[in-house]
């Protein structure tokens, strides 16, 4: 079968790539047109920056997810991990507050804890996948349950709230910004640019695609397969930490409901963006389009009363399935 699918030469492939490039852009344009026709406020500066700022958390995580999936892996634990890291960060900051007082040092401590916890959590996933050779689906399904349960336990079934004074001090990280662009958007943009450069321009990005494309070939080509995989999970964990640092000042709390279904949204964004679910090919800018498409759908549901916003998750679920079907069709049909 593969022999037949492979046979036609260069031209159909170029056609496929072009379609793959145009598809997500087209979807985004159509969505914007729909949004604009349904609500005149949709294209307003305020609404657009709001959409962007809200999508920044998922977006930052989805960039990391792009690398994991490109290298042939998967991480279902990012939503729970975010909730756990947020809970841990709030807990540590509240504990340190009496001795350190409200100010930059205690926030820096919190940021350090979030980044470190994210990195360690990602490394743990990666070690189980690479050193112990367990399916990433199983490892991260397990850690998803573990982190979700840990945050519930930390909050004792309720909500962990950041001290009020500290929250006021920390809030500008979400609500503030420069030139009217809020910090989450700026951080998201920086992460995207760095991610795009690493994916397209560096040996690491090339190695990710090689490992995801055919692990044996990569191994026989002296690529350090285990290390590449491990690093994708570690990077994703670190990015979860960064997302949490931007997220905590928004609500100032964490509970068992924090970050629910973020993994769905992040994986959906990656696949919609044209990264192959089975690995071997990934593009960060596509993931950005995927994130924007998903948040615009959510935003349109919120602004219009056409469909209940409660059905947002259902629509995202349907879109990820559709995206994979389309991806397979375009691969089989060339």
């Amino acid at each position: 079968m593969t022999d037949i699918a492979r046979a036609p030469a260069a031209r159909p492939r170029l056609g496929r790539i072009r379609m793959g490039v145009i598809g997500p852009i087209l979807a985004l344009v159509v969505l914007m047109a729909i949004g604009a026709s349904m609500n005149e406020n949709f294209l307003s500066w305020n609404n657009m920056t709001n959409v962007l700022a809200r999508s920044a958390f998922i977006g930052i995580i989805a960039v990391g997810m792009t690398f994991v999936i490109t290298a042939g892996g998967l991480d279902l634990s990012v939503g729970s991990m975010a909730a756990f890291v947020a809970g841990l960060m709030i807990l540590v900051m509240n504990l340190a507050l009496p001795s350190m007082g409200v100010g930059l040092p205690v926030v820096m401590l919190g940021v350090g804890v979030a980044l470190l916890a994210g990195l360690v959590a990602g490394l743990l996933n990666g070690i189980f996948v690479t050193a112990l050779r367990i399916e990433p689906f199983i490892v991260t399904l397990g850690s998803m349950g573990i982190y979700r349960s840990l945050v519930t336990w930390l909050a004792d079934g309720g909500t962990l709230s950041l001290d009020f004074g500290l929250r006021t001090f920390y809030q500008p990280v979400y609500y503030g910004g420069i030139f009217g662009i809020s910090w989450p958007i700026i951080v998201f943009a920086i992460v995207v640019i760095i991610g795009e450069i690493i994916m397209r321009g560096t040996a690491f990005g090339r190695h990710c695609a090689a490992v995801g494309s055919n692990e044996q070939v990569a191994r026989y080509s002296s690529v350090r397969v285990g290390r590449v995989r491990l690093m994708t999970y570690a990077a994703l964990g670190l990015l979860v930490g960064i997302a949490v640092v931007m997220y905590v000042p928004r609500l100032g709390s964490a509970s068992s409901a924090t970050g629910v279904l973020w993994e769905l949204e992040a994986i959906a964004a990656v696949i919609i963006g044209g990264t192959f679910l089975k690995g071997g090919f990934g593009r960060v800018w596509g993931t950005v389009l995927g994130v924007l498409i998903l948040s615009m759908i959510g935003n349109i549901l919120n602004l219009t009363d056409f469909v209940s916003p409660y059905l947002n998750g259902a629509i995202q679920g349907a879109i990820i399935i559709l995206a994979v079907v389309l991806q397979r069709e375009s691969k089989a049909g060339h």
Binding site: A203, R206, A209, Q216, Y220, S221
Partner: peptide
């Protein structure tokens, strides 16, 4: 199945082993 990435181009395959 062990030597070349069939879904990639010549350039990416050629330099994979000595990318550094």
């Amino acid at each position: 199945t062990r030597g070349l990435l069939l879904a990639k181009g010549m350039r990416e395959n050629l330099t994979l082993q000595a990318l550094r």
